[in-house]
Simulated assay, not measured.
Amino acid sequence: MSRRKVLIVSAALVCGGAERLAWLILQHLDRQRFEPILVVLSGLNDSFPEPEGNKVIYLHKGNFLDLPRIVWRLSRVYQEEQPDVVLSIVDYANLVSVLARKLSHAKPKLVLDERSHSSINLKYEFLGRLKIWAIPRLYPEADVVVCCSNGVADDLINRFNIPHRMIKVIQNPADGDYISEMAREEFDHPWLTSREMPVIIAAGRLVVQKNYPLMLRAFARVNCSLPCRLIILGDGKERESLLKLASGIGLNGKIDFLGFQKNPYKYMARSDIFVLSSLTEGLPWVILEAMTCGIPVISTRCPSGPDEIITDGINGLLVPVDDETALSEAILRLLNDKDFSAGIARAGRKRSEDFKVSEIISEYEAVL
């Protein structure tokens, strides 16, 4: 039986959800049935390892004015590689992949993968308005649109008029074995080794969508009642403004911005609570990762995804979006009730087992 050649198109190799998905598919796709090739619209990024044992094609995208050249180059890749199917991940790569197929003589099956609540998330992006205009015009040209949550699917159907028949919901996988192994790695952060006071942890890009100002203000409230510390993993353009806010509300010495960490799990596993304060998500990988690490999770009930993972009060806590009081009260509830917190953590870890890599990859293989 001949193998199906699959082009996996990703905008970049950075440590985000889209790239993590591409990485997992490359690692776990059945090589007896599929021949995967990774196409990266940008160039090689030192912060993300190049997948070993896989063919990788870099198109070296520049700024947004480079769009016509990237579309043309991807169309040439279609013609040269003659793939059976193209799987593109996230809106920019999706739009480029559709345009490239229209331009190319090769007409592979086209599967788009959407990973955010686009009608909200794109409002915060530089090219958001252009993408909002383009999605309802170009996504219907594909064969299948995979969504990482029911909320993302509903958004595309109701806000962008994508036909329901095109939509397939495939949730994010949690690679429990890998996360557990990485969580055991040694490290020496003094707050997590001395255990002088509770440590709250957050992880994600420092961007507006993650609403870190809410987290800092809620954390400041918590500190008035119970001294604790906050570690934030991740980089982004909001870093300087967040440092200024932290200083302005008296959090110097109580919060540590550690930047991007290749292994966030060793920090998560030794913290007391994980908090997600986002305004919008797709289906947050980081919730599944924190659950796998065995710590209780608090998340805003943002569109979309957290309430598709968490049952409030059972395997995590959900609070309203942008509600400083509710978030601080949820943190204090877990810090002050150790038995309740431990029960939430146990149930969360069990919930993370519902997102097995093998089962999720099988769903992708069925679509490809």
Rank of each mutant, 00 (worst) to 15 (best):
N211H: 02
I249W: 00
D154S: 13
E185W: 08
I179S: 10
F160G: 00
L245S: 03
A174S: 13
P163Y: 04
I232G: 03
L242M: 07
I201F: 07
S180A: 14
S194M: 11
Q171N: 13
A218R: 00
D188F: 11
Q261P: 06
L192S: 01
A220Q: 11
R217F: 00
N223Q: 12
P213Y: 00
K168P: 01
G250E: 06
D154N: 14
I167N: 01
L233W: 04
P264K: 01
R239P: 02
H189Q: 08
M197F: 11
R270L: 08
G250M: 05
V169C: 00
Y178F: 15
Y178P: 02
N150E: 13
Q171D: 08
G151V: 03
Y267T: 03
L192E: 03
N263M: 03
G253W: 04
I255L: 13
E186Q: 14
V275R: 04
L276P: 09
S277P: 07
G248A: 14
I162Y: 05
V152G: 09
I167P: 02
G176V: 15
L243S: 08
D235A: 07
L258A: 10
G204V: 05
F219V: 08
A183C: 05
P213S: 03
P227D: 13
Q171P: 00
M268T: 02
L242V: 06
I200H: 08
R270Y: 07
F274M: 11
K262I: 02
V152C: 10
N172D: 10
M215D: 01
N161V: 02
L216P: 03
H164S: 12
A246D: 06
Q209D: 11
A246V: 01
V275A: 08
I232A: 01
I162W: 04
I157G: 07
L276F: 04
S247T: 12
P163S: 06
S149P: 05
W191A: 05
S247P: 01
I200Q: 09
F187R: 12
N223R: 14
N252H: 11
E181T: 15
F219W: 06
N150K: 12
L214E: 00
G234D: 05
I231L: 13
E181S: 15
K244S: 13
S149F: 00
F260D: 07
G234W: 03
D175E: 13
G248V: 00
A203R: 09
L226H: 12
R184Q: 15
P227W: 07
R217P: 05
P264W: 00
P190H: 02
N161A: 13
Y267C: 06
G204E: 09
E185C: 10
N150H: 13
R229Q: 14
I231T: 05
H164F: 04
G236R: 07
R229V: 06
W191I: 09
